[in-house]
Nucleic acid binder design. Sequence first.
DNA 1: CAACTTACGAAGGAGCGCTTCATTAGTAGC
DNA 2: GCTACTAATGAAGCGCTCCTTCGTAAGTTG
Lengths: 384, 384
Amino acid sequence: MADLRGGDLSRLRQLNSLTAIRAMRGAGPLTLSALAERTGLSRPSMKEVADELMELGWVEEVPPSPGSMGRPARRYRFRADSGYLVGVDIGGYNIRAALSDLDGVILAETRQPVQLDATLEERLAAIQRAVSGCLALSRTAIEDVWTIAFGTIGVIDVEGRVVYSAAVPAWRDLDLAGKLREIFPCQVLIENDSRLAAMAEHRRGAARGAKDVVFLHVGRRMGAGLIIGGKVHRGFGAASGEIAMLPEARWFDAPEHLNTCASVPEGTPPEDAAGYTLAAARNGDPVALEAVGRYIDDLVVGTAAMVLLLDPEVVVLGGGFSRSADVLLGPLRDRLERRCMRMPEVRASTLGDECVVTGAIDYAVDHLDDQLFTPDRGPLPVTR
Amino acid sequence: MADLRGGDLSRLRQLNSLTAIRAMRGAGPLTLSALAERTGLSRPSMKEVADELMELGWVEEVPPSPGSMGRPARRYRFRADSGYLVGVDIGGYNIRAALSDLDGVILAETRQPVQLDATLEERLAAIQRAVSGCLALSRTAIEDVWTIAFGTIGVIDVEGRVVYSAAVPAWRDLDLAGKLREIFPCQVLIENDSRLAAMAEHRRGAARGAKDVVFLHVGRRMGAGLIIGGKVHRGFGAASGEIAMLPEARWFDAPEHLNTCASVPEGTPPEDAAGYTLAAARNGDPVALEAVGRYIDDLVVGTAAMVLLLDPEVVVLGGGFSRSADVLLGPLRDRLERRCMRMPEVRASTLGDECVVTGAIDYAVDHLDDQLFTPDRGPLPVTR
DNA sequence: CAACTTACGAAGGAGCGCTTCATTAGTAGC
DNA sequence: GCTACTAATGAAGCGCTCCTTCGTAAGTTG
């Protein structure tokens, strides 16, 4: 008994306009006929839709390409450059920012290191530096940015308040959205980082086309993001994916096996220890390999819980340690196979460290589509 | 990048026809104006839709009701009695069957006991007895049944083959759909029982209106069914909800705490032991209460895993033991609260033993809606 | 320069939903 | 038994969206 509303004619047009925009996204200039074929509409109808989208400012015409047979076709393209999007990954130790056009094509990226225990002010300053650095790289003004999407550790409620964040002290009981809106004069969105990473891998990474995906964030901290039915699963209180909180899932302390491995030389800074162990394991060091084995033994418990519960098509291994996926994937697959009903595909992240920023951009792009038909919005703001 | 198909005019009509049928479902005869209001369509449009549905045989007119002011309105109703649906719960020890009209209103129910280790032939015979008993009760011929939906233990793939079923020996490596289609001359659907139970509680039970629901089947055997985004979640290989397979979730042996309680008198048949313990706990027997505590200690682990992972709005406690929900709910809530991020509502099943049959009926009803616009189907078969 | 290819644009038509309004079939009151 | 009132009906007309069709235009090729 979801919605019993019947559809109007205009709904149909809305639907078709949206599919048209989706068809143009990142596809370069397209002719009317090409668009018509992709959307399934007839050419005249497609023309009408295109005209309307041009009127609204979403689409523009580009000069026809010469050199082909017959009358040159007029070409349309999504006006990806009439505004910008920014994605920010607020990690424990690094703030990453990326600037993209409205297509989600990334134009510039920056990184700002930050202390895990930095104060709120230091953290916000680092965020601001990362974003402005990004804008400076491609000579873009903050006024031309339509939306900034942030991904961060912790449970963030629908209003953008931090409900829980053990890892980042500065986040405690914070109205994060409020703080960020004070700094940035545009739309501010906030999501959990693992969910954004899952989104990115689903859109352009290792899980493209899959309907149900489990994204494992493996790193100094553990997390999970779920795609179910092709959509990000948030949960009723936006608290999904927090299986690391369950002691029996054996995720919370799993990274310790890598940190405390005997192969790690004295004096290695604690944040580099795990990386050292993984590198040693790749070189065949038996002690390191054993530590990796114990790590995977723990990792597989929570992972098997998710796989048994959801029966996903793909499991993506992402996060800091996924750089060493070659060392981790084999043992993980072996142990998972023994524990689960139907073995999903287990793949390494293809986006690596950039998956959260990329996901933030994708999130902002999605948000953009939603705005196409908000009645109050007139023609889009035009830059240059 | 899901579907890039643009909508046709007829798609709109399809949508509206479907919402009209949904509006009529189980709502008794409705006037055009009432229907128009519910669907959001104008009266003339609603008329056209109604005419078409009458032509197709889904809807019929009933004589207007006298005694009201003004010109009497013509009334329409969904032709729920032009066919029948059967739902069957193939449990380990009981086969339950229910007959419903096309609205999903249940008209008759039967139960057939069966041995857990019965042969395949015995099991199929019991199923047949249950169904024909049900038909006899309401004097219905099998020929008037459009669809039979079965819910059973185990993992059933999309083709209806049993992939895994430890509990029921006869099910091993069986083409269950094939066998059942030999017996019943109508559409045969098969689903996992916990998923059907989840569906029923979501449609008409304790979880009505919730978007994300976890259904816990607690009984001699443990299981789970998930509703995510208002839809049943099946998983890529239809193997979702099998978290009981994970030893660390501590579900598999959990019922043993109730079976082996010292309060159970010597000579109690093993299948009644748990019920005895639960009854004793209700009466305050401290030994039984302690056994229940240990049971819940185990139960809560897998449950917390699901809640942390999915952050559902509601958790429904169903299955055989949920008759003793008064004994179980309190301890479960206490322990769950300590373990999870955001506490969901925890409710007892309102459908009890009937939830799987009911869910099977609901599943068949859903399937019916899907057939509304399959192009090959002409006007519906008419009974009497 | 003619022939060919390909896209454009205008015209006509069908389907769907909306609004409007005179008409109709009842009930209520005198 | 007649009139007034009420509420639904049915037909007409409009606007939107999409479709098909066909003559025309703007290029390339030989």
